[in-house]
Simulated scan of single mutants.
Amino acid sequence: MGQLRVEKVQELIKQEISKIVLTEIKDPRVGFVTITQVEVTGDLLSAKIYVSLMGSDEQKANTWKGLQSSLGYMRSEIGKRIRMRLTPTLSLHLDESLNYSAHIQELLLKIKEEESKQ
């Protein structure tokens, strides 16, 4: 499948999943979620959805469970909204890049403080 088509499908799925999570999922466990990236295979049969979760560890765990339980609903909505022969199988993956960048920022600030003390 052409790379341009795969990229378009990825972006379209990302937009639609973001809308679904923001406005349509009524599960009270789902808290603050950001869809950071979607990776679709070349044959368009599976899609990895990378999510970033905010809150305490308990809130993150509850949000993760809520998102996992609503995967079927999200897949059916994607099938209705995007005209494709087959709807991709969705899988959720935790995106730790925001936590990692915050950790790097903390380390850089500590180094800067130590240099200013000397």
Rank of each mutant, 00 (worst) to 15 (best):
R81E: 06
Y50V: 06
S70Y: 06
P28C: 01
I13Y: 02
G79D: 10
S76Q: 13
M84W: 12
L98T: 13
T41S: 09
L90D: 01
G79Y: 11
A102F: 11
A102N: 13
K117Q: 05
L92R: 07
I78K: 07
L22P: 08
K110F: 04
E114N: 11
Q37R: 09
P28S: 12
R5D: 08
L71Y: 03
S116R: 02
P28E: 05
E58V: 12
E114F: 02
P88M: 01
R85H: 03
L90G: 10
L92G: 07
D57F: 15
I20K: 04
M74V: 10
E106R: 15
G66C: 05
V38G: 06
K65T: 07
I25L: 11
R29L: 11
K60G: 04
K117L: 03
A61E: 13
H103K: 11
V9A: 10
L4P: 10
K112D: 09
Q10H: 05
Q118A: 06
K26W: 11
H93M: 07
G79Q: 09
Y50F: 15
R5M: 02
V40F: 09
Y100G: 12
M54L: 14
M54Q: 12
Q59E: 14
L67S: 04
I25W: 01
Q59L: 02
T89Q: 09
I78G: 14
S97G: 12
N62F: 02
L71P: 01
D27K: 03
T89F: 10
G31I: 01
L94R: 15
N99Y: 12
A61Y: 11
E11N: 11
A47G: 03
K8I: 02
I17R: 04
Y73M: 07
L86R: 02
T63S: 05
T34N: 00
